[in-house]
Computed example of a mutant assay.
Amino acid sequence: MTDGTRVRRRVLVRGFVQGVGYRWSAAREAERLGVAGWVRNRADGSVEAVAEGDEAAVEAFVAWAAHGPRGASVGSVDVREEAPEHLAGFTVEP
């Protein structure tokens, strides 16, 4: 059950997370959870994502990010709380 509280989290995932389908898997998980935002690879080999929506759904996305898809090896996850921007949809950025 949700209370309608919209939250936003910026997630930085480090480890072996590029070249394993992490971004596309993150997009599928976000769509499954009804979370808006985006995901992208960073030049340092990490993956950055923004997830926005219902608090429970966003927290579930963050929990998923801690292990990622099969083939990923997540070393660490940093999560920052941010003010919601009322995004719609979820995109995979280059």
Rank of each mutant, 00 (worst) to 15 (best):
D78C: 09
G75Y: 08
S76E: 13
R10G: 05
S46K: 05
G4R: 07
E31Y: 13
T91N: 07
G89R: 00
V62Y: 02
Q18P: 03
G34W: 04
A43C: 06
G45V: 05
E85G: 03
A63W: 03
L33P: 04
G45E: 00
A49R: 02
D78L: 10
M1P: 13
T5P: 08
A65G: 05
E52F: 10
R32E: 12
L33T: 11
D3N: 10
R70T: 15
A66C: 13
R23Q: 04
S46C: 12
P69C: 06
R14M: 15
V39R: 03
G75K: 06
A51F: 00
A51M: 00
G68D: 11
D54N: 04
E31N: 10
E55A: 13
E82M: 07
G19Y: 15
G21Q: 10
E85I: 00
A30H: 02
A57C: 14
G4M: 09
Q18A: 08
T5A: 12
E31S: 09
R10W: 02
A63E: 15
R23K: 05
A36M: 05
G68F: 07
A49C: 02
V62P: 08
E31M: 06
G19N: 11
A36Y: 00
P69E: 06
R70F: 14
G68Q: 07
V7R: 06
A43M: 02
G21T: 07
S25I: 10
V20S: 04
S46A: 15
Q18E: 09
R8M: 02
R9E: 06
A60G: 09
G19T: 12
R42M: 09
T5D: 11
R6N: 11
D44E: 05
A63G: 08
T2L: 09
R80Q: 14
G68R: 05
T2F: 07
L87I: 00
